[in-house]
């Protein structure tokens, strides 16, 4: 058993007193890739927002490498190495691609090795090197997603949380992005991946959680998931 990087312990959270997450517990072991799957609007993004400190917890505890995250500011949690790559394209639209990436290395520890990080990201996404002086808002949807992920990688964090990396992209681009995620896995990165459908991630992840109506309803390995896929799909009333 590897040591746990992130431990989420029985958290409840929501907006304006209405709970979106109820009693959610999960753990991400060091060096592993964990996937969270579930229909849209059932709390996946909310869970990531809780971990990165954007949404306060009503109850429960989140521990990252022996540090309790509750009450820490968003930027402090980022400094500990929890990197949240948010859903959609929260890139800086009026900045160049290069400046977007440099912003990823804002934190002092990352800034000290900025050239090294930049080269690593350019190796993974050569298109970002080609377009380095282009204004980010003029990129295509796939390029933006690559920029978002690349910017997150610039942080040099210890845990990557990626929210729906395949959302709204053409199949060929999704393949490119998953190739990069596989590469990151080979490097031994710890990743928490959120997707609506499990199909894409089955070859990538070590562990899958199912999130339904704000609660974790199932947990197992990809192999176990495939065995029980039909039962689970009937239960959730959705394609997984």
């Amino acid at each position: 058993m590897t040591e746990a990087s992130l431990n989420v312990d029985a958290i409840t959270a929501g907006y304006r007193g209405r709970p979106v997450l109820r009693d959610v517990s999960l753990s991400v072991p060091e060096g592993k890739v964990v996937g969270i799957v579930g229909p849209n609007g059932h709390g996946k993004t909310t869970l990531l927002r809780c971990i990165s400190g954007m949404l306060p917890l009503s109850s429960g505890q989140i521990v990252f490498r022996d540090r309790i995250l509750k009450g820490l500011a968003i930027e402090k949690i980022a400094e500990l190495g929890v990197i949240h790559i948010p859903q959609g394209d929260l890139i800086f639209p009026d900045m160049s691609v290069r400046d977007n990436l440099l912003m990823g290395a804002y934190m002092p520890a990352a800034y000290a090795n900025v050239e090294q990080h930049l080269n690593a990201v350019h190796d993974l996404f050569p298109v970002l090197l080609e377009r380095r002086d282009q204004i980010a808002s003029t990129l295509s949807g796939g390029e933006r997603r690559m920029l978002g992920i690349g910017r997150g990688l610039m942080c040099g964090g210890r845990l990557l949380m990626i929210d729906e990396p395949s959302l709204g992209l053409a199949p060929i681009v999704i393949e490119q992005i998953y190739a990069v995620l596989n590469e990151l896995k080979r490097e031994g990165r710890t990743i928490l991946l959120v997707e609506e459908n499990a199909a894409r991630m089955l070859d990538l992840v070590d562990d899958i959680y199912l999130l339904d109506h704000g609660e974790l309803v199932w947990n197992g390995t990809p192999a176990e998931f495939e065995e029980r896929q039909e039962v689970l799909e009937t239960y959730l009333g959705a394609d997984l």
Binding site: M54, I74, E75, P86, F92, M95, L102, M103, Y106
Partner: peptide, 22 residues
């Protein structure tokens, strides 16, 4: 670096915070 952080904050406050910008 400060200037980039200022522009980033102006454009997408949430995203800047997630990258460690106070």
């Amino acid at each position: 670096r400060l200037g980039r952080a200022i522009r980033a904050t102006a454009q997408r406050r949430d995203a800047a915070q997630l990258l460690g910008v106070p």
